[in-house]
């Protein structure tokens, strides 16, 4: 895509970061338009956090260049810092202080004077529904409250870009919904949001554009609709009558269609990208010819999970969090 770079919040080319022998980020280009929610999606260890830390000036890039809100991350880091906020993976708060003290401290670091700093802190506490807990030490906050305070702490001054590293990891479903709503409201107000997530559902729900990252490389980018379309439209779902035959049937489908077969966690269902109905039909015939008893089959559009597995070619147990959500 071609954008006028002045409308870009983030413009990165060939970012590389190595840790010893490990290349955490292996050459990533990224263009994020101002005012959008952009999700960086990938499994644990894909390089999402390192990418975010480079853009937020926390980690130096070994190669490549990037501008954030028009400022170069290497030559003008202090200007970048003045136009961003970052909420890390772990609540970056002083647990011994109260929620209010944390916000007052940050407001004063930004340059608000005594009374103005306290007023700003109180506004944030009210907006994030933390007024009741304002004078409690952060160590006594629940996970959802910490997350809210952490995001509030990033909004002491309205940032041009807000970086959110796995904003809902470890939250219960209702707290997660609350954080999602916050993120949408912020985006509506014009804040550009770059978030990382390992939850496909989160990227699907929130983000206008998604970059899929694996092993330090960007392997796909687009809207969730584009990503799904690019992977082909036909996903074949097969339910077996006999669960004991699951492995053998999965092997057969994999060899026939040349794609990774995904097993639904519950029940004897297999899902695999078939490409088109003719290929699906041939695979089904082969299953029946080999004596597998099918209780159900259907063709459908791929979910983002399936897109992800098709792109990364991975479906092993270590990546379980990614398929935590059942296929819709």
């Amino acid at each position: 895509m071609i954008y006028d770079t002045s409308t870009l919040a983030i413009h990165a080319r060939g970012l590389v970061r190595r840790y010893g022998d490990l290349t955490a980020v292996a050459g990533i280009d990224l263009d994020v338009r101002r005012g959008m929610i952009f999700a960086v999606l990938g499994p644990n260890g894909a390089g999402k956090t390192t990418l975010l830390r480079m853009l937020a000036t926390l980690t130096a890039a070994d190669e490549g260049s990037a501008t954030v809100m028009g400022h170069d991350i290497t030559t003008a880091p202090q200007k970048v810092r003045a136009s961003i906020s970052m909420t890390g993976q772990f609540a970056s708060l002083d647990e011994d202080l109260t929620g209010r003290d944390n916000l007052v401290m940050l407001a004063r670091l930004w340059g608000f004077r005594g009374g103005a700093a306290r007023a700003r802190a109180d506004d944030l506490l009210t907006a994030f529904e933390l007024s009741a807990a304002a004078r409690k030490q952060v160590k006594n906050y629940s996970g959802g409250m910490r997350r809210r305070l952490d995001i509030a702490a990033s909004l002491v001054v309205t940032p041009g870009v807000l970086f959110l590293d796995e904003p809902t990891t470890g939250l219960d479903p209702s707290a997660r919904q609350g954080v999602w709503r916050l993120i949408r409201q912020l985006a509506e107000s014009g804040v550009t949001i770059l978030l990382t997530t390992q939850y496909l559902e989160e990227a699907d729900q929130l983000a206008e554009r998604i970059a899929v990252i694996d092993h330090g490389r960007k392997i796909a980018e687009g809207t969730s609709r584009e990503l799904k379309a690019a992977t082909g439209s036909g996903v074949l779902h097969v339910t077996l009558a006999d669960q004991g035959q699951l492995d053998a049937a999965a092997d057969l489908l994999a060899t026939h269609l040349g794609n990774v077969v995904q097993r639904s966690p519950e029940g004897a269902e297999l899902s695999v990208l078939a490409g088109d109905a003719i290929a699906a039909n041939a695979a089904l015939s082969a299953l029946i010819a080999d004596g597998f008893a099918l209780s159900d089959f259907r063709m459908g559009a791929p979910s983002l999970d399936e897109v992800f597995f098709a792109l990364t070619g991975q479906n092993d147990a270590s990546r379980q969090p990614v398929i935590e959500k059942a296929v819709p």
């Binding site: 340059g111 004077r113 506004d123 907006a127 529904e129 001054v157 309205t158 107000s189």
Partner: peptide, 17 residues
Amino acid sequence: NVPGIGALHHVAPPAPP
């Protein structure tokens, strides 16, 4: 009233300390 996130928009940084 509950001011909400709307109340927080576009607060420019004060003079840098």
